[in-house]
């Protein structure tokens, strides 16, 4: 770990002031002055010498730890509320069970007690090469190459990849938020702005070192959930190598609005497949008006995975994704095992 200075923010404005104008980096991940809350990912990465901030601004005392009703009938989740408190909140459990389930599918109880909602969105990939400074990684060190492309890539992306990076975003929570069309509220020197969750995380392209559209001088203050929570017909399904404390091989947040046996609206966000939670709005739209049957869901899965591409060790994820999608929709629609 390299030396860094430490400051504590007493307001959102003072936090912004502390991080603003400090660095050339365009994005939050590579900022040289970084915010720290739960620290469950940042401190590990600093110890591994993967992230090297020169200053940490502690925001744990900011008043962003509540859940509030929004005027639109949704909920606003405070950025500093812990993942655990969010998942176990009665309103979240009743109105957004898919989100609660997704959060509880992630990490371990100890980590969820520390990790915050804002930090969850900003966690970095778990790609082995990103974590090991002895190996090439374009995300860690732009231009050094992608170690995973022809290396150990069992957990890597099958959609939205580039030759520069095949890492996946590790969050479970973000997958459910993507399916819910949540909005990330941020504050910067110029004031507040709202970033739709679908635009918050990026695909790698030729700048894989930039994870999100959050700027280096901005702070996440909250996450807004729309009124529609799909509580009646939704689920989060995660396939992984062990029952807990493992990142998703494939996960799916699915939600249905049903009219009898007909699908009025369908949502699907995939985790473990790409550099961001993966949505395919065209495939979702095609489900509208279809009967809520296995055949419909199977066709949907095929459409979503049409362009999926496997590498040496992760080709199995394409077919696994198909199974997870189908199964998640079956569960959300209440279909019995065939």
């Amino acid at each position: 770990m390299r030396s860094f200075s430490y400051g504590r923010a007493d307001s959102v404005q003072s936090a912004v002031k502390d991080i603003a104008g400090n660095q050339a980096a365009p994005d939050a991940a590579n900022a040289t002055v970084k915010l720290v809350a739960g620290g469950t990912n940042l401190l590990d990465l600093m110890k591994a010498d993967v992230m090297r901030p020169v200053r940490l601004v502690d925001i744990t005392r900011l008043p962003l730890k509540t859940i509030e009703e929004t005027a639109e009938g949704g909920l606003r989740l405070g950025a500093l509320m812990t993942n655990a408190d969010t998942a176990y909140d009665e309103r979240v459990q009743a109105r957004y069970p898919m989100l609660s389930k997704a959060i509880l599918a992630g990490a371990s109880a100890q980590l969820r007690n520390m990790a915050t909602n804002g930090g969850n969105l900003l966690q970095r990939t778990r790609c082995y090469y990103f974590y090991d400074t002895a190996t090439p990684c374009n995300k860690r060190e732009p231009g050094s190459g992608c170690g995973a492309l022809h290396g150990v890539n069992r957990i890597h992306a099958i959609l939205g990849v580039s030759e520069h990076c095949i890492a996946v975003h590790p969050s479970d929570m973000a997958v459910a938020l993507a399916a819910l069309d949540a909005t990330v509220r941020v504050t910067g020197p110029g004031g507040e702005r709202a970033i739709p969750i679908g635009e918050f995380h990026r695909l790698p392209g030729d700048t894989p070192h930039i994870d999100t559209t959050l700027r280096a001088d901005e702070i996440i203050t909250g996450i807004e959930l729309p009124a529609q929570g799909f509580a009646a017909h939704s689920t989060y399904l995660k396939a992984r190598d062990r029952a807990s404390y493992a990142f998703a091989l494939i996960s799916a947040a699915v939600a249905l609005e049903l009219d009898g046996g007909t699908i009025r609206e369908a949502r699907l966000a995939l985790g473990g497949v790409a550099h961001k939670p993966w949505r395919d709005r065209a495939a979702e739209a095609a489900l509208a008006g279809q009967p809520a049957t296995r055949d419909s869901f199977r066709a949907m899965a095929d459409a979503v995975l049409r362009d999926a591409k496997g590498y040496e060790h992760n080709s199995f994820k394409i077919d696994l994704a198909r199974s997870v999608i189908l199964r998640a929709f079956e569960e959300a629609a209440g279909l019995e095992p065939s």
Binding site: S108, R126, Y128, Y129, Y131, D132, A134, T135, G147, H150, G151, V152, R154, I155, D241, R242, A243, S244, Y245, A246, F247
Partner: peptide, 28 residues
């Protein structure tokens, strides 16, 4: 679960932490 994954180009174990080198957890 247990498997040291080597990148033979580098001659190196890549999953060298307990998040990625899997051993059973209580839930298993």
């Amino acid at each position: 679960e247990e498997e040291a994954m080597l990148d033979h180009r580098l001659g190196r174990v890549m999953n060298h932490d307990l998040a990625e080198y899997h051993v059973p957890v209580n839930a298993d």
